[in-house]
Computed example of a mutant assay.
Amino acid sequence: MSLVGYARVSTDLQDTAAQRRELKAAGCTEIREEFASGTMRARPVLAKLVASLGRGDVLVVVRIDRLARSLSHLLEVIETLEAKGAHVRSLGDPIDTTSPHGKFTLQILGATAEFERALIRERNMAGLASAREKGCVGGNPGLRDRDPEAIATVCRARNRSYFDKLNKEAQQWLPAVRQFRPRLPWEDVVRIVNSRHPGAKPWTVERLRRAAGRFVKDGLLDRAVLDRAPPAQKDDRILAIVVGIKSSAPEMTLKQIAARLEAMREPTPRGRAKWATSSVAHLLEQAQRAGLLESD
């Protein structure tokens, strides 16, 4: 388990020294600092930190307001980490998702947020009904009038929303993109991503390329992932796909890997639709000799 601290102040005129001391005293082996307002959800350092944490890791903050200023954002970050098997701990608040008490506190916060959303929806519906009775037309007046400032505000909001959604889904697609791009073409990377998360919404080439481009733009991915894939031998491509399946689920048997390849409609090196476990074993042995997989 790795304890990683996150220290944040609103401007570069402020100092994170006090936060860093507390985080270091709490046992954090690494501390990331960011200079950004807490009201900003799209914070590059936080997004990169959340994307890098893995199973058993703990994101530690001095106070929960260093992580998020709204309950919805806090729950979003925690849910993203929980999906990866990582946790959140606040030194100054009763929030520690590694403990039963901390999880209970989180459940209370979640119920409160849901109740708050229900009240907001109810008030919005009542307000819209009242406006319709008075003959008022809904919508943003600035957008109706094509006001540049109003349009820019809406674009910024949509941009933030898109980044937050990508960040929440990062555990689905980011590891495969880092591992296989640009060595494999986008079509094959999409198939690997979808095979790793069969219950999630399927990714398309365009959607995955756009997601990677956004992370490259924010400095969260190496620009090389957008390069054109070099011509590759079919055997090399199949080997990479098998490595991707095995590395994402080391406990999978040869039979299960064969079934996954068939579900992906990936033909064998000889062009057959049916995979034999011996063919899978041969590819895994090749991967181990090439240093792509650790020996069992």
Rank of each mutant, 00 (worst) to 15 (best):
S195C: 13
S195E: 14
S195Y: 01
S195V: 07
S195H: 01
R196H: 15
R196S: 09
R196G: 07
R196Q: 15
R196W: 12
R196I: 03
H197W: 15
H197Y: 14
H197E: 02
H197K: 01
P198Y: 04
P198C: 06
P198Q: 06
G199F: 00
G199Y: 01
G199M: 10
G199Q: 13
A200F: 00
A200I: 00
A200M: 05
K201Y: 00
K201D: 14
K201V: 11
K201T: 14
K201L: 11
P202I: 11
P202S: 03
W203V: 01
W203L: 03
W203Q: 05
W203F: 12
T204V: 03
T204P: 04
T204K: 10
V205Q: 13
E206A: 12
R207Q: 11
R207V: 03
R207E: 13
R207N: 11
L208E: 10
R209D: 13
R209S: 14
R209H: 12
R210H: 11
R210F: 06
R210D: 15
R210S: 15
A211T: 05
A211S: 12
A211Y: 04
A211H: 07
A211M: 08
A212N: 05
A212Q: 10
A212C: 09
G213M: 09
G213I: 11
G213A: 10
G213H: 09
R214N: 10
F215D: 02
F215Y: 08
F215E: 04
V216A: 09
V216P: 05
K217H: 14
K217R: 14
D218E: 14
D218S: 10
G219C: 06
G219L: 05
L220P: 02
L220V: 07
L221M: 14
L221R: 06
L221V: 02
L221D: 01
L221P: 01
D222Q: 07
D222H: 04
D222L: 02
R223T: 14
R223P: 06
A224R: 15
A224Y: 04
A224F: 06
A224H: 13
A224I: 13
V225S: 07
V225D: 08
V225I: 08
V225C: 06
L226F: 05
L226K: 04
L226Y: 03
L226Q: 12
D227Q: 08
D227M: 01
R228Y: 00
R228I: 11
A229P: 04
A229N: 05
A229R: 08
A229Y: 11
A229S: 15
P230R: 06
P230H: 06
P230C: 08
P230M: 07
P231V: 11
P231M: 04
P231D: 09
P231C: 00
P231Q: 11
A232L: 12
A232D: 06
A232C: 07
Q233L: 13
Q233H: 13
Q233I: 01
K234A: 15
K234L: 12
